[in-house]
Amino acid sequence: MTEVLVRALRPDDLADTSAFAAVRRVCVPAMLATSASVAFDAAHAHPDAHYLQLVAEVDGEVVGTAQTGVAYDSPEPGQSFANVYVHPGRRGAGAGSLLVRTAEEYLAGKGATTVYSWVLDSEENRAFAARRGYRASRSAHFLRLDLVNGELPPLAAPPSGVELRSGAEFAADPRPLFDLDAETVADEPSDVAAEFTDYEHWLAETWHHPLVDQELTTVAVVDGRPAAFSLARTDDAARYASGMTGTARAHRGRGLAKLAKNDSLHRARAAGFREAFTGNDAGNEPMLAINRWFGYEICDTEVRHVRALG
């Protein structure tokens, strides 16, 4: 008889974090994950997020994962998330159902009233969500760019008054990048609004995250202040991803985000990275147009689902 067990991840166990990352890479190749990043996420999550990573085992083998927590940075209380993935070759044993049920019970115990979940856009996955009372909402695309065989747009000289700098140049004082990130995140399309107000936590959770590559991050600077940026994330398998690309409101419409991202992509290719990933809300046409200009192609789609708890 098949035995299914759901438990909390053991973040200090290398085998556990490696298995968690392996399932995530198989299910969503565009989302970078390593053993180190999984352990880091567990150790540095904001305490108000009540962040919990779950694993599902079938006969002792990790076949599914869940990341769940409270959207503490949302101005609307009671919002939460639970993102569940099960290895495509190990579905049908009940691991996904048990992960969802365990996550929902945990979130309800933390006072959550609404749970959001990203669901890969396939008939099977959407039916799974619908059977559990989840309603489809907005969608988002994952995009991939071949850095080996693809042709990047040629590098262009920055316009007068604009300077391109590596994110590593802000290592001593990244506060201006936090301010810029907070402004761009506030304007990003989403079902759950977010407000960045905790600089120290941003330093720990974002700027010093093991996947963030400060050297390959590019910042467009105007009058000594960051005006646009493209945050680079890299793993240990020659893969690069754009963590966030954005422009300060006062400088939008000048092509500075495109300039910064192009510089970062060229430097990533020169450093030996073979493929680049990014993600966009399906309704964010300006950013989708920019990524098409770079040569990105949609490689997968997720649909945000929502369910009221209780």
Rank of each mutant, 00 (worst) to 15 (best):
L5Y: 13
D13F: 05
A15Y: 06
S18A: 10
A19Q: 05
R25A: 05
H50L: 15
Q53W: 11
G64M: 02
V70I: 15
S74V: 14
Y85H: 12
Y85E: 15
Y85K: 12
R91N: 06
G94I: 09
G94F: 05
L99Y: 03
L99E: 02
R101H: 06
E105L: 13
N125L: 07
F128K: 07
A129C: 08
R135G: 06
S137M: 13
A140S: 08
L147D: 02
P153A: 11
P153G: 09
A156I: 14
E163S: 12
S166W: 04
S166D: 10
D173C: 06
P176D: 00
L177A: 00
D181V: 00
D181T: 00
D181W: 01
E188V: 13
D191T: 04
E195T: 10
D198G: 00
E200G: 03
A204M: 04
T206P: 00
W207S: 00
H208E: 15
V219D: 00
A228P: 03
F229L: 11
F229E: 02
L231G: 00
R233S: 11
D236Y: 04
A237C: 10
Y240A: 04
T247Q: 03
A248I: 01
H251E: 10
L259K: 04
K261L: 12
L265F: 06
A268M: 09
A271M: 13
T278V: 03
G279T: 11
N280M: 14
N280D: 03
A289D: 05
A289S: 14
Y296E: 02
V303E: 00
H305F: 12
H305S: 08
R307G: 03
A308W: 04
